[in-house]
Design a protein around this nucleic acid. Sequence first.
DNA 1: GCCATTTAGATTGTGTACAATTAGATTGTC
DNA 2: GACAATCTAATTGTACACAATCTAAATGGC
Lengths: 154, 154
Amino acid sequence: MAKQDKAGERMPRLEQQLCFAIYQVGHAFNRAYRPILADLGLTYPQYLVMLVLWEQDGLAVKDLGERLMLDSGTLTPLLKRLEASGLVRRERDARDERQVRIHLAEKGEGLRAQGRCVQEAIGQALGGAAGEAGRLRDQLGLVRDALLAASRED
Amino acid sequence: MAKQDKAGERMPRLEQQLCFAIYQVGHAFNRAYRPILADLGLTYPQYLVMLVLWEQDGLAVKDLGERLMLDSGTLTPLLKRLEASGLVRRERDARDERQVRIHLAEKGEGLRAQGRCVQEAIGQALGGAAGEAGRLRDQLGLVRDALLAASRED
DNA sequence: GCCATTTAGATTGTGTACAATTAGATTGTC
DNA sequence: GACAATCTAATTGTACACAATCTAAATGGC
């Protein structure tokens, strides 16, 4: 009985909801990454961009956006900041001048080794929870796909 | 062997990382909620605040912040927008004038019923993935706590 | 009672996010 | 080849998110 509304009037408790659990663990990841990435002079989204570029250089803004689920409104200023930091170069594609291709600059290439250490630090922060990470990740992928499919249906 | 650097040089692929799965599913939730909440004139963080207030009215900004893991720098402008929309009132506590207590305004109270429908819509968007939501949520809670504990250790 | 310390909220500055719009390049069709 | 439709980035405006700082109020020790 305690703290419950009339029948049919149940308001879901915040802590019971999956979306909130994800909202919170996203914040927690951000906090864990922040001090580590601050040593590299990167924010978390900037680090994601660098991860993609370390894997494949010379991508267009659109490619980066598809990989990270971000649009040009987010990426353009972010990439300009990375360029200002000397980590990447932004160059118009000569063949298709609509596209801007992002290349690692020397300094960005040099950060690659330090980037590898970041994951170790995060793995350590996860501690015992690291074991389940793989399965969790896959389940979250299913949730993501279900939500995106529903969004596309309008 | 395939697509692997020299020994010890493995750069973790974006898609294999738990943090990125959470980053993406957070975006996906946001997109799923946005059109639903737009009908109520709310953003997702604003909706979270309303959920808390529907559960317990008259909380101080600090209480809301602890519940949602947000600080005054985020909450103050958000609450001012909710006040401007006529959903809440912000009142200095007479006994402790440092605190600002947030009360549901009439319009905010009236939104309660519609708030209940939001969860149904999201549950529908989750589709088959909804069944696992409970266990997933609990596992994410463990991840969150591990990260926060590690953050506190500096 | 007085004053250092702590606390609560607001403010400032930087950096995502995303909708909506715009500018310029490219493509498809006739 | 002209030209409408499409595509890529950039831009504008609104809204989180958080570090750092500031102000006013409350508290604790003496």
